[in-house]
Write a protein that binds this DNA or RNA. Structure first.
Length: 220
DNA sequence: CTCCCGATAT
DNA sequence: ATATCAGGAG
């Protein structure tokens, strides 16, 4: 069945009502801490990132202090979150750039942020949205999956989905909607076993599984 | 497209 | 055993 604009608006209204109090799950106290936490979050749960940053940030929470750790020292700190060699290399290169070109400050535009090693469009969108209150929709694995399943936006790449969502959602709710979709993806519309019977969208979802289908295939 | 990668859920 | 987790670089 075809998902009309009205259906999309109804689904968004229900998501807003259900997830109105959600925000980032990453713990941070400064712009730099958020930037590092988001870089670490690639292919890793936010829970594990918080464990790592919780023991690292009290001692190492500025570009200068991270650089003092060195490659192997940083790897030791972040090893548990996976992809640790690349992440450590990128974070060190990013800290060097922040010190040499940005006076140790986190840049406030997507164009500048994506110049930093380890920072792609998704991370840049999270940072500008969360730190500088610029409307943006960061498309991570959850947003990508949920947007396609609900057919709020269809696309084969994160950028295609981002553009589709920006058309379907009013600009002043872009940043909030990003969080609605993330939390829905984490708690209900999960990758392996979506809990369609517990979903606030009910029949509105074009991919909804019937109760007797819940145990089998994923509708992607 | 492949590669990077440990921890967790299923 | 295998899929998945706030992706990005080559």
């Amino acid at each position: 069945m075809r998902v009309t604009k009205v259906i999309k608006q109804q689904m968004l209204a229900l998501l807003e009502e259900t997830y109105q109090d959600t925000t980032t799950a990453l713990t941070y106290t400064t712009p730099f801490e958020l930037l590092i936490a988001v870089i670490l979050s690639a292919q890793c749960t936010d829970v594990r990132v918080n464990i790592i940053t919780g023991r690292m940030f009290p001692k190492y929470n500025t570009p200068e202090k991270i650089l003092e750790l060195g490659q192997s020292g940083l790897e030791e700190q972040i090893r548990d979150c996976g992809l640790y060699h690349s992440k450590a290399k990128n974070i060190i290169a990013t800290c060097t750039m922040l010190c040499e070109q940005y006076q140790g400050q986190v840049p406030d535009s997507i164009e500048e942020l994506v110049k930093l090693p380890g920072v792609g469009r998704k991370t840049a969108n999270v940072v500008v949205s969360q730190l500088f209150h610029i409307p943006a929709i960061a498309v991570d694995t959850h947003v990508f999956r949920v947007a396609n399943r609900l057919q709020l936006a269809k696309g084969k790449t994160p950028l295609e989905v981002e553009k589709g969502l920006m058309k379907a959602i009013p600009r002043d709710k872009w940043s909030d909607a990003h969080h609605w979709l993330i939390w829905h993806g984490r708690k209900v519309c999960k990758a392996r076993k979506p809990e369609c019977t517990a979903c606030c969208l009910g029949e509105l979802c074009p991919s909804a599984l019937l109760p007797d289908q819940q145990h089998q295939g994923i509708p992607d």
